[in-house]
Design a protein around this nucleic acid. Structure first.
Lengths: 403, 403
DNA sequence: CTCATTAAGTCAAGTGTCTTGACTTATTAC
DNA sequence: GTAATAAGTCAAGACACTTGACTTAATGAG
């Protein structure tokens, strides 16, 4: 009672933690490799055949995996491969952007089953909360109409919006969605849906999506450079999304570039916001995405000029990412129109020499990722799926075991 | 046999993994909080009193913890605190630098018991290997002379040298120790000492040291900006050193700065190498360290000019680190003379506005760390200690369990 | 065609580690 | 002096992985 400073310690673990981890490892292996037999799983995970059998049996009972037709592979008893059941789990993903909000429902393997969007009225959360909650409710009930028992298998709601979170805010920056960023979104969504809610910035969501179904599938170290209205980096480190102390890791858009004696955030030079300014168009125009795509396809000169300028900064960004994170690969993705992303990738090459240039590379240094207005919502939905099923240190610890 | 593509999967775990983790959690808690009673440990780790008792008993048998005098804390039976036994384990740390090699022996709590250094002859590993092995052998036998049974409690040898590792090499860069970097140092040291050997770059080693006994003690997210002959960042992410795909994460010295229309690596502008060039002194001079310290203390004009210039770049680096890693704190350390580091810290402030500027901060954004020629060797030694005793995801997995 | 070989998968007992709940010990508060 | 409180132990129990023998089902060699 006297000198009771709080004691800091990591949580211990027990049998349940072990079991939870092993279940996740199985699911992860099936996700990465496709269907595998129990014997394959035992070899790959270093567990015994018996243990694998028990866990697979349990996963099958839970409707997460199912057996496929036996395959003969030479001598010996044929093996029975088990694969993930797509309908084994669902999650809702929600993207809150400047002028629009999007929601999707995805299944265990990351297929989008339902998608819907709505315009966001000006005025921030006070006007937008209802729109957002209605959108989520709509997607949720459509999902329930498509698949039976979806509610029982709904692992959570993932939200994504531009970062950074919880920062004092520079006030004068018209590109910050400060009202939403300050708003207790997590609490509101939890109260409004009754679901387990998570929140990431949009670059992190894009990275989560790439890891589940895209170019980072099965990789342990990958960075997604996300070009959207702003620009950010989603970090997959040691096989998990890295969030930093306050969920703001990877906010590369705020990195400062020096030119002409003054410093400018990367975001002001290479992002859709900078493109819109360059083109003097209205960011709120709902047809803007298609319009820009058209311009890019047509080889518009103004677009070209912006691409060339942005490519210089992106080339530098990729070099910086390689230098600081030493990833297996860098993935360029965005909510930008696909034609624009393609032009950017073409303009970025060749990359600057870096420590990523080494003999024996198997992956390209830079890969294209998803460039789809829905990829952030997909990534948002991938968050809860990943939290529930991917192997993670935190999932082993006693203080995170649920039932 | 037919389509046997390798199956990728994470390793499963079992009872031993659980037990190993819980042991590590106890040791970690005692390291962070000092001596704790079993009841304290049970509450902090969420394990039961009984489990804690068993583990503590085992750790005591192994000579890693010992009981202290009972303390009365109000009503109830007095508690018996247990603390780490410094002599419970030892490790050797080895630093290989441009002109010198240093070795230290440290104990479980990071106290340096033996230190020794030797000049490195030119010619790289072919001439230097024997010097290095002799130095390690000398420190090892001196340790054996000071403490009994030290060999049995020696958990490994940690080596540190400037990175990057395994890179093609730009050939024309006189600041790269390419011969050593290409040399199979790990294998040579393993063969030459029979110990478990680890290798990190010097910034990573500095971070490891700061985490064990310095400003990053007990922190889960901290970045050490290391100013030495080169400049690098040691990354503590999620409570562990982050190495990246090839052990090259954090090589911020290679980040490119644009000025006057051309790009320059940070390392060429803010590092001891740049200072030596600025002062036109011989980097191989053994008295250089003391000399520079003197100059700094005396307020030398040439030093001052370099400090002012370097501070601009370091301020930018710190902003970049905060932006990309979102750490709890940034620690400035180095093998630079302490007076110089102090001048740098003074010149760096005030920091640039960043996402690290938030209400409710408890730690300063920038803290001074160790500035001691021996800190890299200490960090190198801290590597094996950390690998052996700190809670880590990898330590739970079956494929890393030894006996 | 037969049978040894190979490999997948099951069975049942065994083991290790954490958990549970009652109990003992030691101190303070009233 | 006694009740309350907290640390720590004891012994049985539960859980999840392991072990080794066994069953099943295919191939390949003679």
């Amino acid at each position: 009672m006297n000198d009771s400073r709080p004691i800091r310690a990591k949580s211990g673990t027990n049998h349940e933690g072990t079991s939870a981890h092993n279940r996740r490892v199985m699911i992860d292996a099936l996700r990465i490799n496709g269907a595998l037999s129990r014997a394959d799983l035992a070899r790959a995970t270093r567990l015994t055949k018996q243990t694998v059998s028990n866990i697979i049996e349990e996963l099958e009972r839970d409707g997460l995996v199912s057996s496929q037709e036996a395959v003969r592979r030479g001598r010996g008893q044929p093996s029975t491969p088990y694969g993930l059941v797509p309908e084994g789990a669902f999650a809702i993903g929600l993207q809150i952007d400047r002028h629009v909000t999007r929601a999707v429902a995805v299944n265990l393997v990351g297929s989008v089953l339902v998608r819907d969007e709505a315009g966001l009225p000006p005025g921030g959360p006070s006007n937008g909360t209802k729109v957002v909650l209605d959108l989520v409710a709509g997607v949720r009930s459509k999902l329930a109409g498509i698949v039976q028992q979806s509610e029982k298998r709904l692992v959570g709601l993932g939200a994504a919006m531009p970062g950074p979170f919880g920062v004092a805010g520079s006030g004068d920056d018209p590109w910050m969605m400060e009202a939403w960023q300050k708003f207790p979104l997590l609490e509101t969504l939890t109260a409004g849906t009754g679901l387990d809610v998570g929140l990431q910035n949009d670059a992190a969501a894009a990275a989560t999506a790439e890891r589940m179904v895209g170019a980072a599938h099965g990789l342990d170290h990958a960075v997604c450079l996300f070009v959207g209205y702003g620009i950010g980096a989603g970090l997959i480190l040691n096989g998990e999304l890295y969030r930093g102390t306050n969920g703001n890791a990877g906010e590369i858009g705020m990195a400062l570039l020096f030119a002409d004696g003054k410093s400018t955030p990367l975001e002001h030079r290479a992002s859709l916001a900078s493109l819109y300014q360059h083109l003097s168009v209205d960011p709120a125009d709902p047809h803007l995405h298609a319009h820009i795509n058209d311009l890019a396809l047509r080889g518009d000169q103004s677009i070209h000029a912006w691409v060339e300028a942005a490519a210089v900064d992106l080339r530098w960004s990729i070099h910086l990412i390689e230098t600081l994170f030493d990833p297996q690969t860098v993935i360029l993705c965005g909510s930008a129109p696909e034609a624009l992303v393609n032009k950017l990738i073409a303009a970025i090459g060749p990359l600057l020499p870096s420590i990523a240039e080494r003999r024996g590379r198997t992956l390209p240094r830079l890969q294209p990722g998803m460039a789809d207005p829905w990829s952030v919502a997909l990534g948002a939905a991938a968050g809860p799926i990943s939290r529930a099923f991917d192997p993670r240190f935190a999932a082993i610890l006693k203080d995170s075991l649920q039932s």
